Simulated scan of single mutants.
Amino acid sequence: MLKGLGQLGDMAKMMKSAQDMQAKVVQMQEDLNNTVVIGESGAGLVKARATAKGELTGLDIDPSIFVPSEKEVAEDLILAAIKDAQAKAKEREQSEMQKITQELGLPADMKLPF
């Protein structure tokens, strides 16, 4: 189709690849918004739910941690569960981005989107 056009044909391929990459990144972002990760602390006494984009969506707290004299322990467990959920969300997002870069033949450590 673009045989006699030399580098213009290569440019068309590059533009198509860029469009494909953009579509994959958009789809991945949507998928991450719908994916739930769960962070835990205190051997499961506190669980935090978040989207794989890191948005906290819920907490599940075992009532046994609500002892008035243990207020600081409860706060620490809640914070630890939230941080664990956020870390899992970040790992998931990086893993999905790495899949896209590998599919496109880009270096695995390349940061997307640009």
Rank of each mutant, 00 (worst) to 15 (best):
M1Q: 00
L2W: 09
L8K: 12
L8N: 03
M11N: 07
K13T: 13
M14I: 07
M15V: 13
S17K: 14
A18S: 13
Q19D: 14
D20N: 12
A23Q: 15
K24C: 02
V25T: 10
V25E: 07
V26K: 13
V26R: 11
Q27A: 15
Q29T: 14
E30I: 13
D31H: 08
L32G: 06
N33H: 13
N34M: 09
N34K: 15
N34E: 13
T35Q: 10
T35V: 10
G39D: 11
G39L: 06
E40I: 01
G42Y: 03
A43W: 02
A43G: 01
R49D: 03
T51I: 08
T51H: 06
A52D: 06
A52M: 08
A52Y: 05
K53G: 08
L56Y: 06
G58S: 11
D60R: 09
I61D: 04
I61K: 09
F66M: 15
V67P: 01
V67S: 05
P68R: 10
P68Y: 05
E70D: 15
K71V: 13
E72T: 12
V73K: 12
A74S: 14
E75T: 09
E75S: 10
L79E: 02
I82A: 12
I82L: 07
K83A: 06
A85I: 08
A85E: 08
Q86Y: 01
Q86P: 00
A87Y: 02
A89K: 01
K90L: 11
E91V: 04
E93S: 14
E93G: 04
Q94W: 00
E96L: 10
M97R: 12
M97E: 04
Q98R: 15
I100N: 03
I100R: 02
L104W: 11
G105R: 02
G105E: 11
L106K: 05
P107Q: 04
P107S: 05
A108V: 13
D109L: 06
L112S: 06
L112Q: 07
L112D: 04
P113Q: 12
